[in-house]
Every structure is written in structure tokens, then in C-alpha cells.
Nucleic acid binder design. Structure first.
Length: 268
DNA sequence: AAATTACTCAACCGCTGTCCG
DNA sequence: GCGGACAGCGGTTGAGTAATT
């Protein structure tokens, strides 16, 4: 599947692209919509599914999750249903698994992940489900490139807290700790190694210094050692700390109503 | 065009902390 | 206090892709 669709690609082209690839019996139309939501919406920033996609979607509501898959899909299916069925599945998530997980959470909520995995019929560990949900499927996951403002904030917070990725992530709405961690390792550390200037104040950039010297003293539950400036920063709400995103960029978030087609699956 | 290298990032692993019976 | 189950975290890996030779 072609993943190199750029921001400028319009809805119609997207439909054609997706339809061409997936509408040949490989997956249900719902999968197509889900792909649109999870993989393409962040790129094209459309407020609603395109009309033709919506129509397809309406049709898909009467279909069950177990709709037949084409040859390619069958290969994937075979892997799931093979002799490994009794074993816990690992590795990349399939579209069908994503659908099942998102659908289940939309109807039952998240939490108690091991039970969730079992109840949803996913042959995955609770851990795996949690990770997939939090890092990828969650409606408010913000996708797309890290902005300059976000990078600056990451650097500032890393200098303050070290490799406390989840804590840093909480200050960047929609960004996951995994994403920030990866970004730090692949981009920012590379810049440092190459001697590129990071013209931000008070930046301590080595993992060694940051983790060892900061982690303990800046613990979540012990802010007593913070200076006034540090304390005031700590006291700020995530909203206050976070960069102000443009209206366009917020389009990369999912809306609650984005889940309606998935919820409809259970006939609610 | 093919082979190799570099890069990205989703997912896993192992560990710690917390909760609850 | 103990042990099991679970959540959450940070570090690491490896498959897929892009860039380079």
C-alpha cells in the first residue's frame, strides 16, 4: 500500500488510492474507513470522511467484523489462525486487530488490559493492547511531525527531568512517550553528536547527566527541592506549558464522534 | 538496477510500583 | 507482611523504508 500520500493530496485522490488498494475484497469497507482515520487523517486533515467514503461506510455498517478477506488478507488471517493460535500473538498489529480493539474500547472503555484482551477475543497480551491503544489508536493521539515549538519544549523538559518520557509526554498533548523518546534518540541526540547548536537555554543534553542528576530530585511526588522557578513551572498545567497548536494542527486529533461507525458495529 | 547503509518508529522486554485479597 | 495481578515506565530491538553507493 502506498503510504506516501502528501498533505496536498485531496479527498478524492485519497479515496481512489484507498479504494484501488483495499476495495478489491481485501478488507471490509470499515477497515478502509479505519485506515483512513488512523493512517491518513493526520496527513490530509479533513474534518469529515469524504462523501464517497461515508457512503461506503454506511454500507459497511451491516457487515460483520468477520467479513471475508482477499488473498492478501487471507495470508494475514492465516498467520493469525495458524497453529500459533493458542500462543499469544506478537509483532505488528493487523487492521482487523486494530478494529477489534478500538471497537471494544469504544463500547466498554479502557483498563484492566488482560481482561480486555481476553474479552475482546484478541490473542494478545494486555500489555500489547494497552501499548497499541495508547501509542496509536487512542483518539487524541496527535500524529505528524514534531513542530519546532514541541521540539523546544522537549529539550527544555528533558533538561529538567531527564529521560522521564511519560512525564514529558504529558506536557505535549497528543504526543506519546514512545514518540518523544524516539524523537529524542533519533533527531535531537543526532544533532548534538553532529555538533549542531540547539539555541535553547539551559539545555543539558547528555543522557548521563540528565538521567542521573535530575531523575531523583525532580520526582513526581517530591517537588520540595525545586527552586521557585522550577516549582512554578512544575505547577503549571499541561495546557499552560504546551505549545499553542494552530486550528489546522488540531485537526489531527480524532473527535469523539469519529468512533460512531465503530460503535455501531455492536448494534448499539 | 542492485546492493548496501542509514534511518525511523512500532512493538517488545524487563523492571518497578501499586493495589488488593 | 506476603504474593499475585496489573499498570506504567524506560531501554532496546528489528522490520520496513529511504538514501546512498
Amino acid at each position: 500500500m502506498n503510504t506516501s500520500i502528501h498533505n496536498s493530496v485531496g479527498a478524492q485522490n485519497l479515496c481512489l488510492e484507498l479504494t484501488k488498494t483495499y476495495d478489491e475484497g481485501e478488507y471490509a469497507l470499515t477497515s478502509l474507513y479505519f485506515l483512513y482515520k488512523t493512517h491518513y487523517k493526520p496527513l490530509i486533515l479533513l474534518p469529515h470522511p469524504p462523501l464517497s467514503l461515508s457512503l461506503s461506510l454506511s454500507l459497511s455498517l451491516s457487515l460483520s467484523l468477520s467479513l471475508s478477506m482477499g488473498e492478501e488478507g487471507n495470508n494475514m488471517e492465516k498467520r493469525i489462525n495458524s497453529s500459533e493460535e493458542t500462543e499469544v500473538r506478537k509483532g505488528p498489529w493487523t487492521v482487523e486487530e486494530d478494529l477489534i480493539l478500538a471497537n471494544y474500547i469504544a463500547n466498554h472503555g479502557e483498563g484492566v488490559w488482560n481482561n480486555l484482551a481476553r474479552s475482546a477475543g484478541l490473542n494478545r497480551t494486555g500489555k500489547s493492547c494497552r501499548l497499541r491503544w495508547l501509542n496509536y489508536l487512542r483518539p487524541d493521539v496527535r500524529r505528524g511531525n514534531i513542530t519546532q515549538e514541541e521540539e523546544q519544549l522537549i529539550i527544555e523538559l528533558h533538561s529538567r527531568w531527564g529521560n522521564r518520557w511519560s512525564k514529558i509526554a504529558r506536557q505535549l498533548p497528543g504526543r506519546t512517550d514512545n514518540e518523544i523518546k524516539n524523537y529524542w534518540r533519533t533527531r535531537i541526540q543526532k544533532k548534538v553528536k553532529q555538533g549542531e547548536p540547539l539555541d535553547y537555554q539551559n539545555v543539558a543534553l547528555t543522557d548521563e547527566t540528565s538521567t542521573s542528576s535530575h531523575t531523583n530530585s525532580f520526582d513526581d511526588h517530591n517537588n520540595n527541592n525545586l527552586s521557585y522557578a522550577e516549582q512554578s513551572m512544575t505547577d503549571q498545567t499541561p495546557d499552560a506549558l504546551a505549545p499553542q497548536f494552530s486550528a489546522e494542527s488540531t485537526g489531527a486529533f480524532w473527535a469523539v464522534e469519529d468512533f460512531w461507525p465503530i460503535q455501531s458495529f455492536n448494534g448499539d
